[in-house]
């Protein structure tokens, strides 16, 4: 019962939507539109769970005074004040909320990712090796692309960008498509198995 009802809900809603795909009739469209609305409304409650687990994590650390709990205070304070500022004073273009977003969240987020560029430079020197024939081809193509995709490449040889476009459009495209078809088949197979209740991994984590 604890597993059979969700499996049936999944089966029925999945099959209904697949059949709906092939039926253009008005009634079928109504079913479709209602389903879309229902998905949005029911999905909102999942956010509550996400919030709870976040708050829970930080509060436990603060209450138990775990090592570095001061940082958890920073997180909690930031979350609560940001949410309060947004809900109480609005989120318009010139609001304090958007100012904080633009000047605190955006730059930090971008900087976090920019660290990767530095790590890439260090890995370029210390790790990327042409150990095998395959790796050699890979590196050579990479070097061609790296020169051809910057203005310097065009400056060195004006057909460099064309060469890069050709590599991207044919050999690269072919491999991407081959890999993509494989992934598409794999995904579709997984989806089919979930609808039919053969794959039940998603039921996990809530007891039997």
């Amino acid at each position: 019962m604890r597993k059979s009802i969700p499996l049936r809900i999944c089966l029925v809603s999945g099959i209904v939507m697949i059949i709906q795909f092939f039926i253009p009739h008005r009634y079928s469209q109504t079913v479709y539109n209602y389903t879309l609305d229902w998905l949005i409304v029911s999905g909102i409650f999942a956010i509550v769970i996400g919030l709870h687990s976040n708050f829970h994590l930080h509060i436990t650390r603060i209450v138990r005074k775990r090592k570095g709990w001061g940082y958890n205070v920073v997180t909690m304070a930031a979350t609560l004040s940001m949410a309060f500022i947004g809900i109480a004073f609005g989120i318009g273009a010139d609001s304090l909320f958007m100012k904080i977003y633009r000047n605190i969240e955006v730059p930090m987020d971008a900087t976090m990712f920019s660290l990767l560029g530095f790590f890439m430079a260090s890995a370029a020197f210390r790790a990327f090796r042409a150990k095998t024939k395959e790796a050699t081809v890979l590196l050579i193509v990479a070097l061609i692309i790296m020169i051809g995709r910057v203005p310097l490449g065009y400056f060195l040889w004006h057909r460099f960008p064309e060469l890069v476009e050709w590599i991207m459009m044919y050999p690269n495209m072919a491999a991407q498509r081959g890999i993509g078809l494989g992934i598409g088949l794999g995904m579709a197979a997984m989806e089919l198995k979930i609808i039919l209740g053969i794959e039940r991994g998603w039921l996990g984590g809530a007891g039997d």
């Binding site: 430079a121 370029a124 020197f125 990327f128 090796r129 790296m146 910057v150 203005p151």
Partner: peptide, 20 residues
């Protein structure tokens, strides 16, 4: 940014070749 990108790519290429 693309000027910088050109220079940085050259540096990356040098790193890879030197490293190898």
């Amino acid at each position: 940014g693309m000027d910088t990108q050109s220079v940085v790519h050259i540096v990356m290429i040098i790193f890879i070749i030197l490293g190898n």
